[in-house]
């Protein structure tokens, strides 16, 4: 003959099981706690990390870093370098297009420009 179970009693049993479960918590192993803590320390932001890291980085740059700082940053230094390289190239290669441009602007080849009258001319004139 099948026994009929009182629903209230079944509820009480369940509450009893819950209470037991609350008092028997799952205990983490030491290995798990160690792993979690290691993750935490690895991921932890380091205080003063940025100020401490910057000076070695600057020193590592050496001459170029100091030059860049002197000329107002790496961008300015790069611009000056490019201009210097272009000047050297034009001076050595003397591109024909440049001569054409010179003729067009000045009309004829310019041999001499006397910016200060010679001493002889000065004396003759007086």
């Amino acid at each position: 003959m099948k026994t009929r179970i009182d629903p209230m009693r079944a509820q009480d049993d369940l509450e009893d099981l819950f209470a037991t479960a609350r008092h028997m918590p799952v205990r983490p192993s030491a290995a798990l706690l160690d792993r979690v803590l290691a993750d935490g320390l690895d991921a932890q932001p380091r205080p003063h990390t940025a100020p401490l890291m910057r000076p070695p980085a600057a020193a590592a740059g050496g001459l170029w870093s100091r030059l860049a700082a002197l000329f107002g940053g790496a961008g300015a230094l790069a611009g000056m370098g490019t201009a210097a390289a272009a000047g050297l190239l034009i001076g050595f290669a003397q591109p024909s297009n440049l001569a054409t441009l010179e003729d067009a602007m000045l009309g004829s080849p310019l041999e001499t420009v006397e910016l200060v009258p010679s001493v002889d001319g000065f004396l003759v004139g007086n």
Binding site: P28, V36, D39, G40, A43, P45
Partner: peptide
């Protein structure tokens, strides 16, 4: 549990 804690560390 380890993965959830790792996410917490990263969210901190």
């Amino acid at each position: 549990a380890q993965e959830a804690m790792l996410r917490l560390w990263r969210a901190a």
